[in-house]
Amino acid sequence: MSATGTWDQDTFAAAVGEAVWAPSIHNSQPWRFRRCAHGIDVLVDRSRALPVTDPDGRAARVSCGAAVCNLMLALAVAGAPAVATVGHGGAAVRLTPAGGRPATPRERRLHRQIRRRHTNRSPFAETRVDAGVVAQLAETAAREGGWLDFVEDEPGRAALAALTRQADAQLRADPGYAAELRTWTAAADLDVEGVGRQAAGAAPHPAELMPRRDFGGPERDATRDPTHEPVVAVFGVHGDHAADEVRAGMVLQQLLLLAADLGLAVAMYSQPIEVPEVREQLRLVVHRLHAPQLVLRFGYAPTTCYTNRRPVADVIDPEGRG
């Protein structure tokens, strides 16, 4: 801690170095971090908005929430944990010191997965996910203030897949969407942002259970999903306001890190959330009061290439330096 009772610059910068490994749509990394007299502010970087895919900034707020989760884990492991206040002033989240204490075993386990976790765009193996593992994921979501509804019956999975395909087709028919996607994929293998061909996995195939976004990966021969009982779920939180979307990101990252700790691969599908009428249909399918935030698939798959990240200096607000 510094003389003011907040984190010193080295602790702050090291924690930000972990925060930036959170997931974000198109790997746009829409966050900034500011060290101030009262703590750390995490802000949405509106200059990195996706006006077609994310016109209201929902996905950017979810991404910032995921970064906050990483940031809090890093501070806890450094022995300087934080308390989060969502929607503080102009910040997405303000972190304030919570006093010194050792990190818990759970915090240490999840922290170790921050740089190991990645969105998996490979075909999933025909390997059953144990029911106890599924229960751990659902319990974690509930404990952290969210919900994770697993779609376990064949008709339900078919309905979920159909909604995802409907949304994906509607998005791809929009020239503005296609142009925006190209902006975040062109030459991204050598860039610090976006999704390059190496990280994209193979090109999506029409016979896949649920269509992945096409980031320009190579064609593959597989013509079907080999998994007979895929583990798919709809994720959300109890609320539909901007602060709830930030909280959704915090809960989501807890789930993703736990999944990595359990040896699971995770694929994320946001297309049915990005089309309002499809999102409403999805809400009705899972019988929830509040709109879902993401569709997730859990299973086993080979590790794919990681997306790059911007340097820490690029995401720290100049007002917070020194």
Results as ranks from 00 to 15, higher is better:
residue 212 R to I: 03
residue 221 D to T: 13
residue 225 D to P: 08
residue 282 L to Y: 00
residue 258 L to F: 03
residue 283 R to E: 05
residue 285 V to D: 05
residue 205 H to W: 09
residue 217 G to M: 07
residue 293 Q to H: 14
residue 215 F to A: 03
residue 292 P to F: 01
residue 297 R to A: 01
residue 257 L to C: 10
residue 198 Q to F: 13
residue 212 R to P: 01
residue 247 R to F: 05
residue 252 L to I: 14
residue 229 E to W: 11
residue 218 P to K: 05
residue 213 R to G: 10
residue 274 E to P: 01
residue 234 V to Y: 01
residue 227 T to Q: 11
residue 231 V to N: 00
residue 263 G to I: 08
residue 208 E to S: 10
residue 234 V to S: 02
residue 264 L to S: 00
residue 280 E to F: 00
residue 212 R to D: 02
residue 261 D to I: 04
residue 270 S to R: 02
residue 260 A to N: 15
residue 294 L to I: 08
residue 245 E to I: 07
residue 230 P to C: 02
residue 216 G to K: 03
residue 188 A to N: 07
residue 274 E to K: 00
residue 213 R to I: 12
residue 290 H to F: 11
residue 235 F to C: 07
residue 286 V to H: 06
residue 241 H to F: 06
residue 193 E to L: 10
residue 263 G to H: 06
residue 294 L to W: 01
residue 217 G to V: 06
residue 281 Q to F: 00
residue 201 G to Q: 07
residue 238 H to P: 03
residue 255 L to P: 08
residue 217 G to S: 12
residue 192 V to H: 13
residue 205 H to M: 05
residue 285 V to P: 01
residue 241 H to V: 10
residue 218 P to G: 04
residue 223 T to L: 12
residue 219 E to P: 07
residue 251 V to S: 13
residue 235 F to P: 04
residue 262 L to C: 06
residue 274 E to C: 02
residue 205 H to I: 06
residue 240 D to V: 07
residue 234 V to Q: 01
residue 296 L to H: 09
residue 186 A to F: 13
residue 249 G to A: 07
residue 248 A to G: 15
residue 262 L to E: 08
residue 227 T to Y: 02
residue 241 H to C: 10
residue 299 G to V: 01
residue 276 P to H: 00
residue 222 A to F: 11
residue 185 T to Q: 12
residue 263 G to K: 06
residue 255 L to R: 09
residue 286 V to L: 12
residue 285 V to Y: 03
residue 245 E to D: 15
residue 224 R to V: 10
residue 200 A to N: 06
residue 190 L to E: 15
residue 296 L to C: 07
residue 215 F to P: 00
residue 265 A to T: 03
residue 221 D to R: 09
residue 285 V to T: 15
residue 298 F to I: 11
residue 209 L to K: 05
residue 203 A to Q: 09
residue 238 H to L: 11
residue 195 V to C: 12
residue 298 F to V: 11
residue 201 G to N: 11
residue 287 H to R: 15
residue 220 R to V: 02
residue 198 Q to R: 15
residue 276 P to C: 00
residue 248 A to W: 04
residue 223 T to V: 15
residue 213 R to F: 10
residue 249 G to D: 07
residue 275 V to S: 00
residue 192 V to P: 09
residue 189 D to C: 05
residue 231 V to W: 02
residue 242 A to I: 08
residue 187 A to T: 09
residue 210 M to S: 10
residue 186 A to C: 15
residue 244 D to N: 12
